[in-house]
Structure formats: C-alpha cells, structure tokens
C-alpha cells in the first residue's frame, strides 16, 4: 500500500466508523455492503456525501454505481484526488 493509499484508507476508516457509529470498525479493500449489517442505501449515501466532503471531490452517478467494494471506492478517490 502506498502512502497515498494508506492516507485514503485511514480517512475511510474514520468515515465508516462515524457512519456506522462503531468506533472499532475495521475496513479492507474487499469489504462490501453485504458484509456490514445496516449498510443500506441511506448509509451508502451518507458514506458518499462524507467522502465528498472529506476529500473535496464530487462522485458522479456512474462512479457510485460501478463501486462493488471499498477498494473500488478508494480507487476512485485516488484517481479524483490526483486529478
């Protein structure tokens, strides 16, 4: 994992902990909505809006729909933040 990726995952961990109100939550690139109780469409939106605010980017509908796991989300963030 590169330094940039580590930074992204560290920020994402904070976001997931806040959204799911679980201070011990751990995330990994392969984590999907099915793995997390309560990860419904509302939580999905909370995660996306939080990511947008945290990284100062805007996620579009195509990007959001193509994400299958946390790794996909991190990849989009890395690409957008670098641009």
């Amino acid at each position: 994992m590169t330094a940039d990726q580590a930074g992204i995952y560290s920020a994402l961990t904070e976001i997931f902990r806040e959204v799911f109100m679980n201070d011990d939550m751990q995330i990994s690139p392969t984590l999907t909505a099915k793995d997390v109780p309560g990860w419904d469409s509302f939580k999905q939106i909370e995660i996306m809006v939080s990511v947008e605010e945290r990284f100062g980017i805007k996620l579009n509908t195509r990007e959001i729909d193509s994400m299958k796991c946390v790794g996909d989300l991190a990849a989009v963030i890395a690409a957008k933040a670098a641009a």
């Binding site: 469409s41 509302f42 939106i45 909370e46 809006v49 579009n60 509908t61 959001i64």
Partner: peptide, 12 residues
C-alpha cells in the same frame, strides 16, 4: 443526482 438516487429533495 441524489434526488434521482434516493428521492431526497433536501440533501443529507
């Protein structure tokens, strides 16, 4: 975009 995704008129 959020309106189309979730019918939230006021964004979260």
């Amino acid at each position: 975009a959020l309106w189309h995704r979730s019918k939230q008129e006021v964004s979260p």
